[in-house]
């Protein structure tokens, strides 16, 4: 059976990982390569790096650390953050990223997804969607510019359009849940997973193993992303995975969440 994936996410600015990382046995927690290796050794199924550098100078460091990460990692990794042109995507893929993720730029110019998919295949073309429940009416709205701009676009409709254009996977972040530790947004994740044929990575709201069991069963997610629960040392990937398996075996109704241990 295909395993449900657990994906730690690392934010990088100016070539250094940011957010309070509290890791034992790591010489330099600010080094994306060191941190990536640590998560790989813990049993991470994939990694996602988001470059949040404010300046273009900061972003120029991307290619360097992507090359270093690619040399060290034996598992797939995705790079996103400010990817707005085919040329930029090409440089990241050439540097060794397995996939690139696009967000604001894809909303502004959806053909970008087609350009990347046609040049390198939809398997490396990830659409990142930041979604927030609509104030009025059903469904969710797409946010861009790191949640600062409301687009008025319906999130599920955008997901469907993006898949037609070439997106091969969706990184779906609930802006209602992100940073809350209140569990993943199950209705949002389920709506995407049912509407789209491509895999959906749920993001936003991760806490303990129960939240992962829920998003893989009720939420129908193919993968789930978390950042702070790993960075702050609350959970290691392997402990979390074992706890998910134990929970899903304990509850007969949810028996058999396939996890790579």
């Amino acid at each position: 059976m295909l395993s449900k994936r657990i994906i730690p996410c690392l934010d990088v600015a100016n070539g250094r990982t940011v957010k309070g990382v509290n890791f034992q046995n790591l010489r330099d927690v600010g080094d994306p390569v060191e941190l990536a290796k640590a998560y790989q050794d813990q049993g991470a199924d994939e990694l996602i790096f988001l470059d949040i550098s404010a300046s273009s100078e900061g972003r120029e460091t991307m290619i360097t650390w992507v090359e270093q990460v690619a040399r060290e990692l034996m598992i797939p990794f995705t790079v996103g953050g400010g990817v707005s042109t085919l040329e930029h995507a090409k440089r990241l893929l050439d540097a060794g990223a397995d996939k690139v993720s696009m967000n604001t730029a894809a909303v502004n110019r959806p053909e970008l997804l087609t350009e990347v998919a046609e040049a390198y295949g939809s398997q490396c073309c990830v659409l990142a969607v930041d979604a927030k429940r609509k104030q009025d009416g059903e469904g969710w709205e797409v946010l861009i510019h790191g949640g600062k701009t409301y687009t008025g676009k319906d999130a599920v409709a955008w997901g469907k359009e993006a898949v037609k254009l070439g997106a091969g996977e969706i990184l779906l972040t609930s802006w209602d849940r992100d940073g809350t530790h209140a569990g993943f947004d199950l209705p949002l994740t389920r709506a995407f997973s049912q509407a789209l044929l491509v895999p959906v990575i749920a993001s936003g709201g991760a806490n303990g193993p129960q939240s992962f069991v829920e998003v893989f069963t009720d939420g129908l997610a193919d993968a789930a992303l978390a950042a702070s629960i790993f960075h702050d040392g609350q959970w290691t990937v392997d402990k979390l995975k074992h706890a998910i398996v134990e929970l899903s075996e304990f509850d007969q109704a949810e028996k058999g969440i396939p996890i790579r241990l």
Partner: peptide, 15 residues
């Protein structure tokens, strides 16, 4: 077979 599998492509770890 899209009638049998829920997602195409298959992406991820399988045994």
């Amino acid at each position: 077979d899209a009638k049998k599998v829920s997602k195409i492509p298959q992406i991820g770890w399988n045994h």
